[in-house]
């Protein structure tokens, strides 16, 4: 599904990623762990095409297509979804209008007609229940005045609406209490299908206990220094990241 080859990238002239190689097959859930500043968020931003980051070398293909030549919205239409670490507030744009615009843009890219209004509202109703958001959601502005937990639930809700084939969860667990974490994680699990894959970025094992990743990568200084199974999370929980620095 996703194939990253020898990726170098920088922001404001500062090199952050130094040769990333990563392959994620259909149906796999990968986790990416590392300390602050290791380049985790840089990688997720580059996959979705954030304009502030510059790819200096390497390639990313998604289902065989060259991802780096696509605009952010084209990547979204291909089925890539990022649950943002800090979702931005957009005053004045209601969730209703926002989701409708997003959904219809995707349908248009697929050659489909816009979704009928009643069907759309029904879908909104159904999907918000997955993450236990209430019925006021539709008329609220995007993320505006949402609590930290609500914002993260809103991200998963949007994922439910857009049904991506590849989702990136960028520190979706940060700032969540135990209950919110459970809601988000269970929501995510409900949405999983055999062919969909995901990349989960986190510091902690907490979220991974719910999501049960197949493969875990350790990112240090812009490089993946270790790749292993679920046991890697336990190793980190017990002895931190230092043990991998020698490997690098």
């Amino acid at each position: 599904m996703l194939e990253i080859r020898n990726l170098y990238a920088s922001i404001n002239g500062k090199e952050i990623l130094k040769g990333i190689n990563l392959t994620i097959h259909d149906g796999e859930v990968h986790a990416l762990m590392g300390q602050n500043g290791a380049g985790k968020s840089t990688l997720s931003n580059i996959i979705v095409g954030h304009p502030a980051y510059e790819v200096t070398q390497g390639s990313i293909t998604f289902n065989g297509k060259d991802l780096l030549s696509m605009s952010p919205e084209e990547r979204a239409h291909e089925g890539i979804f990022l649950s943002f670490q800090q979702p931005v507030e957009i005053p004045g744009v209601s969730m209703n209008n926002f989701m409708r615009a997003a959904l219809n843009a995707k349908r248009k890219a697929q050659g489909l007609e816009p979704i009928p209004a009643t069907e759309f509202l029904k879908l909104m109703r159904e999907r918000r229940k997955i993450v236990e958001l209430d019925n006021k959601l539709a008329n609220r502005s995007v993320n505006e005045g949402f609590s930290g937990g609500e914002k993260k639930r809103n991200e998963i809700f949007q994922m439910a609406m857009l049904e991506p084939t590849f989702a990136i969860l960028d520190e979706t667990d940060s700032g969540l209490d135990v209950d919110a974490l459970r809601i988000v994680a269970e929501g995510f699990n409900k949405l999983r299908k055999p062919e969909t894959s995901a990349l989960v970025i986190t510091h902690y094992q907490r979220l991974l206990d719910y999501l049960k990743p197949d493969i875990i990568h350790v990112l240090i200084g812009g490089q993946i220094v270790h790749t292993g199974g679920p046991e890697v999370a336990t190793m980190i929980e017990e002895s931190g990241f230092d043990q991998f620095i020698q490997e690098a």
Partner: peptide, 19 residues
């Protein structure tokens, strides 16, 4: 906000209009 909307698949021109 513009980028957030584009990540959700909303074309740039549409996102600008919405904002």
């Amino acid at each position: 906000a513009l980028f957030y909307m584009r990540q959700r698949g909303i074309p740039e021109s549409e996102a600008r209009m919405l904002l």
